[in-house]
Design a protein around this nucleic acid. Sequence first.
DNA 1: CGAATACTGAAGTTTCCACTTGACTATTTC
DNA 2: GAAATAGTCAAGTGGAAACTTCAGTATTCG
Lengths: 109, 109
Amino acid sequence: MPELDIDRVFHALGDPTRRAILDRLCHGPLSVSRLAEPLDITVTAVAQHLQILAESGLVYTEKIGRVRICRIETAGFTLLQKWISDRRSLWDRRFDQLGDLLAEPEVEK
Amino acid sequence: MPELDIDRVFHALGDPTRRAILDRLCHGPLSVSRLAEPLDITVTAVAQHLQILAESGLVYTEKIGRVRICRIETAGFTLLQKWISDRRSLWDRRFDQLGDLLAEPEVEK
DNA sequence: CGAATACTGAAGTTTCCACTTGACTATTTC
DNA sequence: GAAATAGTCAAGTGGAAACTTCAGTATTCG
């Protein structure tokens, strides 16, 4: 279990293929080769994507026999959601403090 | 105004320097050179990052005189938040449908 | 007006990352 | 036990993207 940070999560989600994989997994668990089918890249490439997704806490995989089953893992999503709400509240707080827009001479002291 | 899609947003947020820029802007608007100060990259590089952030609806910039003022723009964050909640609800729905875990022979038919 | 400031544009470099190939291992199935 | 299946490992390639340099354009200040 690699230490789960937001850097990994954003890097993982930055790739459209990885987001496509997540989209399919939202509807239920799938094997590696099943995931590869609609994507026109090799199974190896898919496995590489899955490793990145797993390391960022977005996917959980488990090898049963010769098949690796992949599922959505919520940890990564939770971390991401926290990141957004943290920044949102920081920014929103600014609007409350001052009258904003009008009468604001300084652009950070 | 370029069409604002989630692809751009995720690509923009995939870079740690751009996230650092956003973090600073959460505390208030800043000029390009002010943003560049703590980052050890050139002003040009910062301007390039800002363009990407602007194109993804995460930052709004406005040139006043010779200074370009940069602020957080909420559109990108809103889009991102929607993306997460859409996927979360899809995945959560699965758990409700079936008894999950136990008694689930198929891995997508 | 001349100098300094704040940025912009174009072009080149370098680094990174998605993807491939080909050989290999482990598990089923016949 | 041989063949098929499912995935893994290591190494290499190509292209995108982050960053630089340097020259240029407005704008403001003395």
